[in-house]
Design a protein around this nucleic acid. Sequence first.
DNA 1: ATGAAAGCGCTAACAA
DNA 2: TTGTTAGCGCTTTCAT
Lengths: 348, 348
Amino acid sequence: MARVTIIDVAKRAGVSVASTSRALNGLVASAETIEKVRAAAAELGYAADVTARSLKLGRTQQLAYAVADIGNPVYVEMMSAIERVVAASDYRLVISSTGDVQATVDLVHSLGRGFVDGMVISPLRVTDELVAAIAQAPVPVVVLGRVPESAGVDTVRADSGRGMELVVDHLVGEGRRRLAFLNGPVDTTPGRFRQDGFRRAVADAAGVSTVEVGVDDFTIAEGYRGALELLEGKVAGEIDAIVAANDLIGIGALHAADDLGLRIPEDIAITGVDDTELAQVSRPGLTSVDLGAAERGRVAAELLIARLAEPERPLHTVTVAPSLRVRGSSVLGAIRSVTLASEREASA
Amino acid sequence: MARVTIIDVAKRAGVSVASTSRALNGLVASAETIEKVRAAAAELGYAADVTARSLKLGRTQQLAYAVADIGNPVYVEMMSAIERVVAASDYRLVISSTGDVQATVDLVHSLGRGFVDGMVISPLRVTDELVAAIAQAPVPVVVLGRVPESAGVDTVRADSGRGMELVVDHLVGEGRRRLAFLNGPVDTTPGRFRQDGFRRAVADAAGVSTVEVGVDDFTIAEGYRGALELLEGKVAGEIDAIVAANDLIGIGALHAADDLGLRIPEDIAITGVDDTELAQVSRPGLTSVDLGAAERGRVAAELLIARLAEPERPLHTVTVAPSLRVRGSSVLGAIRSVTLASEREASA
DNA sequence: ATGAAAGCGCTAACAA
DNA sequence: TTGTTAGCGCTTTCAT
């Protein structure tokens, strides 16, 4: 627990601190010096103080991923993708869980410089304050999601519009005509864009009636509650499909329908968004549109690292294409009893 | 993006850097100085460099939680609990995902000093090297799990023995006599202790025969694979219960059994460990033993903060008691169609 | 190849 | 109340 500094190592090795530093960092030094320093460092259990090193170097070799909702598997998926990219670079990744907007603002603004060399953020809500913080962030920021161009940062986004279109077209193609959109909070980025996408998609479909219900969170519990409201309320029996804004809500809806004795998909079809593992493993499997979370994470990390290498490179905005995974919650008999392994193959 | 230092702020405000620092940190300063400094800092968009601050202070005000397997919801649950405690303190929490043992060793050893003031680690595998690293960690470490006493650190552990006993007793009480234990890798801490627990528990039960199968990971896919092996292999038809080592494996087993046309729980009962949300939302619900993940996380964070406040306090080892949640995967009709909300009430 | 010394940005004595 | 200054541990010129 006692802190041993480079001075201790230098003394022990009988050389100067400069030589010690050089030996430790693989710079010019005689074999003899390197040997002595290595030995001394090992004996003392020396580990360089990353704070001092960062201060001197002006960089931390550390990147952050700020997640708003770590309880949602889709963010874990993104995180893993980011991590793979970062691990292959010379940076380390730290995860910062930022429940509310304020936490994200604080992170971007006050923690930027010195804490990390750059960060990827996937904010749930985008306030003016957040945009301002991003615009004057002391380190490069890559945003996973939508942010005004004035923020002036690299951005990776999903194509929610096309995604919702895929879902709606699929349901309509299966003969569904009365769709309920079960959304999360509409003041969030996903909530807003998925709603817009849904509306545009149904506007293009003839003879389709819709109803919309919003719940307070993108969670299973809220999805359950919202679906119950829908299925027991005045539209009960009048809808033949529930389009959930994400998989968590979709799973909740699945259970609500099941608990009410409705047959899925005969009585009601249910779909989700994100194609998380939850959608794959629910019974019936939840039809879901993959918005390319892993791909988005990967690209975001690459954009960040590229900008760190070349700060003045032009801004990039990458949009990742969605794809639909049809399962038993929307189509009778659809790969209902397929194994995880073969589902994976099928998606390749 | 241009870095503005405290010197810039001092110049702008027309006072010394010392006064600037004091004004910014709420120490003695005249109202007038505070006002000038505030204004200057705001105009320049100044944010203190945490690296320099940490170097000077000798601490980072930052804690780390090192997770081995962030894909497992139980660790997310622990993380949330840790975060709640940390958020209420003056520290910040950073998450570090450490896939393999080496990453954990590196984190504990070389990153300790300067990176964070202390860390909570939940290693999946405990090697001699890790124990050595923990023992000479430059900052306080709290281990979630089992570690030799020689590591000399505060520890929070689950009572796997009692947990497995609860599961086995329940199954035997329901008339099950031929139990299969579907374990994860036995070279991991959970793998080993849950196996030990299972063996001790069945040793106490009369007339019970057992079989054990180990899979390569604590994942749904591996659980599915292992269960298939079990249910299609030579013990097929000879077992009436699968005791999975965690919920992920249990969910995989649930689906494997379902895909083979077995009725759950009539033909086969299935149980998990950890009582994650997955167990609550699967159909049928997965009977699972809650090893107190949230509680363990909470206690670990509190132990760490307490040690930071009082470095010489005696070592603590806290064991959290398990409890069983019975669901439809092991008992016919058990709260099968209960809602999430009422399940929560029931667990209170 | 090596050592002396400057200095990264900040805070805390210490003096005034 | 304020300013001057030392110094946290490290890396990196600049001499030698």
